[in-house]
């Protein structure tokens, strides 16, 4: 049923010089789904997200978002789609010349026509979601790593996009905050029917949010299924990835 697909990726290949990062990958994400991407460090998870948002251009393949092939789109049309997508960078990428408040307001002021009162409400609201109301007038350089991550998250969800791309939303956070962020992703899914692609290593987070997951390995999707299926798999590699000890075969 083609109508339920928000994202369709067909035969995507991405290289940097001789290094093949993604090799002939196909996947799809349905409306309202939380889709988790696992994979060891350096397997191309961030690259996959950047291809989806059009920051990196793949060498081959198609990426359809709502039946528009974003690889062929002009900048103007691509930007129209981007206004409905939120992106959390792995390193948060806060604008370091702006305060937290200005960081959050920036896109709202540039791309939408809200009144200042509405903007203020949205900013407070977004900060409450990540429990950082007190940081509103701080500069990014005054924040800890985990705080930056949470502000980055607040900044990307503030426009209430239809699709969120999270690059490791809980990495570097303590277990309690991690769970809160995971709950937040779940709440957004329920309340706004938001679709999410979440890159993570955090099994607790994945357990809370994932409807479906894939595992990237050797530039391919090596496994696909629910979290339970992946965790309970007898595959030697998956067992190693998800277990506390190193399993010797």
């Amino acid at each position: 049923m083609a109508d339920s697909r928000l994202i369709r990726i067909e035969n995507l290949t991405k290289r940097f010089g001789d290094l093949v990062v993604l090799n002939d990958i196909s996947l799809h994400v349905d409306y309202g789904e939380n889709f988790v991407v696992f994979g060891q460090s350096g397997t191309g998870k961030s690259v996959l997200l950047k291809c989806i948002i059009g920051l990196l251009k793949p060498e081959a393949g198609n990426i359809f978002i709502k039946d528009k092939n974003i690889i062929e789109l002009k900048k103007k049309e691509l930007n129209k789609i981007r206004k409905n997508i939120g992106f959390l960078f792995q390193g948060a990428a806060l604008y370091d010349s702006m305060t937290v408040r200005e960081n959050l307001e920036f896109t709202l002021k540039k791309n939408f026509n809200f009144t200042q009162k509405e903007i203020d409400e949205k900013v407070i609201n977004a900060l409450e979601h990540v429990s950082l109301e007190e940081a509103i007038d701080k500069m990014p350089s005054e924040l800890s790593g985990g705080m930056k991550k949470r502000i980055g998250l607040a900044r990307s969800i503030i426009t209430e996009p239809e699709l969120m791309l999270y690059d490791e939303p809980t990495t570097g956070l303590d277990p309690i905050t991690s769970k809160e962020i995971s709950e937040l992703i779940l709440t957004l899914q329920k309340r706004l029917n938001m679709t999410s692609i979440v890159v993570t290593h955090d099994l607790i987070c994945a357990n809370i949010i994932a409807d479906r997951a894939i595992f990237l390995r050797d530039s391919k999707i090596s496994y696909e299924g629910t979290i339970d299926e992946l965790v309970q798999s007898d595959d030697y590699f998956l067992r190693n990835f998800f277990s506390k000890e190193i399993i010797k075969e």
Partner: peptide
């Protein structure tokens, strides 16, 4: 230096993906 550090810390990409 200013734009260079914005580039390498992905701040420029962040603007790009926010359709700015």
């Amino acid at each position: 230096a200013e734009l260079g550090s914005m580039r390498v810390t992905e701040q420029i990409d962040a603007m790009e993906v926010s359709a700015i």
